[in-house]
Design a protein around this nucleic acid. Sequence first.
DNA 1: TGCGACGATACCCGTGCGGTATCGGGTGCG
DNA 2: CGCACCCGATACCGCACGGGTATCGTCGCA
Lengths: 287, 287
Amino acid sequence: MDRLELRTLRYFVAVAEELHFGRAAVRLHMSQPPLSRAIRALETELGATLFHRASTGVILTGAGAVLLDEARALLDRADRVRARVATAAGAAALTVGILGDSTDPDVVRLAETYRRRHPHVEVTIRETDLTDPTCGLHAGLVDVALTRGPFDPTGLTTHTLRADPVGALLRADDPLAGRASLTPADLADRRWFRFPAGTDPLWQAYWHGGEPRRGPVVRTVRECQQVVLWNGTVGMTLAEHVPAEGLTVVPLTGLPPSPVLLAWPRADPSPLVRSFVRTAIAAYDAA
Amino acid sequence: MDRLELRTLRYFVAVAEELHFGRAAVRLHMSQPPLSRAIRALETELGATLFHRASTGVILTGAGAVLLDEARALLDRADRVRARVATAAGAAALTVGILGDSTDPDVVRLAETYRRRHPHVEVTIRETDLTDPTCGLHAGLVDVALTRGPFDPTGLTTHTLRADPVGALLRADDPLAGRASLTPADLADRRWFRFPAGTDPLWQAYWHGGEPRRGPVVRTVRECQQVVLWNGTVGMTLAEHVPAEGLTVVPLTGLPPSPVLLAWPRADPSPLVRSFVRTAIAAYDAA
DNA sequence: TGCGACGATACCCGTGCGGTATCGGGTGCG
DNA sequence: CGCACCCGATACCGCACGGGTATCGTCGCA
């Protein structure tokens, strides 16, 4: 009674249009055997032969032609359901907080994907400087944050997407710039750039290499680079970070990698927030 | 992208009509938690809130009302697809062979179920006497057989549904009639009813208690009972069999139980045969 | 304040779906 | 005539998802 699902009908339409199981499978981004099985099961379910499989090729039977017609109509209608519900839900807005002043191509792609799948949602990207890892979540400025940890998770739900190794950001002419890797101890006597007082303690501690530091206070990635470039202060950044001219990055060992994570208010997230989270997780899983 | 399936929409319609998750779950023959999850996932998928869950009860949102409308239309159309394809497939006929001259209520229920789900199929039940366990499959008289083993499976596909213990069929005044159980050895000196020469050897051997026997030849259940009643001949039957007046059944130990099975020609079974097999397996699994 | 109703959450388990590897047979070419 | 390739079917496997039970949190009411 329950093999007749929209997914199965999409499979059927693909095969009926290609008249070739292999090509249809490619189009459906799957392999051929499960497709053959699904069509076979559909035939069993309906009690009718939908394709004649001859060595010369695959052709539709009469029943198959009728089903093709019906299936297309059904799928068209199903596709419109999303739009109808979306307009009925009215104008919807979602503000996504992202961390830092650098433009991350991943974030741009994610926003595009989400806008394509939820065209009725007005998506606003709000960039925050490095002093607030929650990107304004606690202040209620954004609905969901695509940011980095660690920070105080009180009242928030978080989901870690990835973790990136970190490195030391040095002047290219620094004595340690040629080293293959460094530990925080190697830089214990240096001046580090720091985040302002009041910044989340966990966050501050992490980027200070796990120790209390002294040095100039910065708020943005650009400031970090400028401070390092100007006066030989050091600091942490992502190991993959491609630094500005005159700077270099040396991998830091002995430190946990920097987690990329989603965060949103714990209490009763809206469907929009949940759908964004789902989309983001799917996108990062795929990458 | 793929949470929007007909099954999910059926869930949604049930909840929207009951405005009560628990009752909707009952109607859908499932428990309440998976239903809540499914609706929640649907909301996430669509990026819209479909129900307001207040302590006073559940009410539809505007988006929910629109979806209810759309979902009903979609489900109606989907239900008609089956009928459309069936008529396009043309008049179809399926002959089911069953074993024996006794009417089995399970078989009647199964036939009813199948006819309800495949109204375009002309289902014919063909009863065979006990001399052909394939119910005319080899002779091409039936498309699929609902019968018992064992028999020569050459050219056939079989699927065992169940196995029933067997017993000895005795006159009620037989000296052994009071025993709690018997073995074939206990009856070694008796005359057994037999199946005619030419009957499938495996089948014959099974019902003769695994040994060659001498005695009157029978072809039907009624004949078996009559022969035993008239002259004290013995034979095997199902242990659960409720015998006619003057007869008794004593469980036989040391013999494999009698398998109930489906059989159909191995070569390229039609969708009708496959759908019948599926229905039958589901029915016997449920029982 | 205790209890009942009801939806949400946590956790477990089996099944179904999609994957890879391989088969079989039919066709076409050397 | 045989070999090789094309293509759908089959076999088998692993995992995610859907369904289950148990329990929680919260709200209304006695």
